[in-house]
Structures are given as C-alpha cells and as structure tokens.
Simulated scan of single mutants.
Amino acid sequence: MRSRELDPSASPLDYYGYELRRAREAAGLTLAQLGSIVFCTGSLIGQIETAAKVPQRDFSERLDAALGTGGLFSRLVGLVLRSQLPSWFQPYAEMEAKAAYISTFQAQLVDGLLQTEAYARAVLGVRNESGLDTRVAARMERQRVLEREHPPAVWVVLSEAVLRQEVGSREVMREQLAHLLTLRERQWLNVQVLPFEAGAHAGLMGSFAILRFDRDPDIVYTEDFVQGHMTANPQPVREGSVRYDQLQAAALSSEDSAALISRMMEGRYGNEPEPGGRDMA
C-alpha cells in the first residue's frame, strides 16, 4: 500500500496525506464513506492521502467538520498551498506573511494580494495550464494575510498600464477593477494609480516591493522572468524606499485613483464599449 509508505516529514503535502489517513482510520471510515460526508469521491480522498493531489481550503474545512479535528487540516492546508508556490518565490511569501507593512509598485499586473481568482487564473495560465487549479489556490491562499485579526498595512501603487492591459477578458477585467474599488473599505489598505501623465518616473526600472517588520530589518524585493531577488542590504532598501516615496508623490490620490478605476471599468470594460473599442478614461 503506497499510502502506508508516506514519510510525513518529506513535505507538507505528505504530512497532510499521512494525517488524513490516520484521522480517517481512527474514525472508522472507508474512503467512500468519508468522501460522501465531505461531498467528494472516495478516489479523491485516496489521492490526497497518497500525496498524489493537492487539497484545497474548502475541502480541508469540511474535513475538520467531518472528523472533529479541531481545525488541524485548515491549518495544514496553508502550509501545503504555500509549498506549491514556485520554489524561488516561497522565501518571499514567508516574509510577506510576517510583514507589518507591505508597499508595492506594479508596472504591468495587479499585485497578487489584490487579484481576483479569475484574473489570477488568466495570469498564471498564460504559458502553462498544468496544475493551474493548484497554482491559483496557492495565490489565493497568500491573500489570507489580509484577513488576519491584525493585518499588515498595505499600500499599492499601480501603473495606469495595469488598468489598460486586458488580462483574461473584458469581464475578468471588470470584475478585477470592481474588486479594487471594494478594497477601499479596508482601513489598512490603500491603492493609488500612477497616471501616464506623470511621465518619466521612479518606477521605470520595473515592479518592486518593500516589506517592513516590527522587529526585523526591512526587505526590498524585485524579480525578473527567471526568479526573485530579496535583500535586507541597507543601501538597496534605502534606494527602494526613496523610489517608492517618489512614486506615491507622483501618483493620483486615493480618491482620484478610485475615480479613474471606476471610469476605466465602465468605459473600457463596460457592457457597451465605445465604438471602435475606444474607452472613456
């Protein structure tokens, strides 16, 4: 039996499968019986128990309710999904989850913490749709940092190009821009748009993020098309901080940014676009 050979220390996914099999057998349930309780097939339960498939959060929450495991699988699934992020990105995701303050400039895409599921799916599926559901779930899991009892303060500056670049479809973009507007309700989250009219600006070198912590040194993060680069070296952190301050100063105010997002949502991605595809923004 392959499931009996799982090494729970091999990976978060193996540990999850090991604990699931142990909890199911302790409850005296077959694969099919547990599957019927949590609304899935016994085959899926077996695949997760043998680390052949990655569990999702809603599945994990149903498991906890069915097996009375006190939130064990809801806690474990966060580790499992984080382990599915690209290996070069995982160190940043771990630091991001601990940050007290996150500030980011995005030149081409909506920041991952603010993406809708449909937008994330379109972005992550551009070159490869293999394992797309898992990769999307992992990105959505990152956003749980915003749901903490004491979430980090998040400040995002988006280039106007982010709003104009159609990702997925007009419907996907409309939903994404609407989501950005709803985020205004969050006390510790702020979104600004850097308009084209700003001209040459401090972010022309590309997207970057700065993480600040209560007790640890600040970190600046950049990435290229191969991997990410994270450093706590004081000089690049200082350079990144100055550049970010300049971007914030050049960007529209939060109110004017929301107005531009709203105009773009209705004019460029509305149900009745302007003739010839022209938008109103």
Rank of each mutant, 00 (worst) to 15 (best):
E166A: 11
H179Y: 15
V162F: 11
V172M: 03
E185N: 11
L158Q: 12
A178R: 14
S169C: 06
Q192M: 09
L189G: 02
Q192T: 03
R186S: 11
L163N: 06
L163K: 07
T182V: 13
A200D: 06
N190C: 13
V154A: 03
L163M: 11
Q192N: 10
L181E: 11
R184L: 06
W188P: 00
L189I: 10
V172P: 04
E171I: 04
E175S: 14
V162G: 06
E175T: 13
R164L: 14
E175N: 10
L180N: 07
V156G: 01
S159C: 06
L177H: 06
Q165P: 00
V157S: 00
V157Y: 00
R184S: 15
N190Y: 00
M205R: 13
A153V: 14
Q187Y: 06
G168P: 04
A178V: 06
S159A: 14
E185V: 00
M205E: 14
F196V: 02
V154T: 07
W155D: 08
M205C: 01
A161N: 13
R170N: 09
F196T: 03
V191T: 12
M173V: 03
A202L: 07
L177V: 10
N190M: 09
V162I: 11
E185T: 12
V157I: 13
V193R: 06
V193S: 02
H201I: 07
V172N: 01
Q176W: 13
L189A: 00
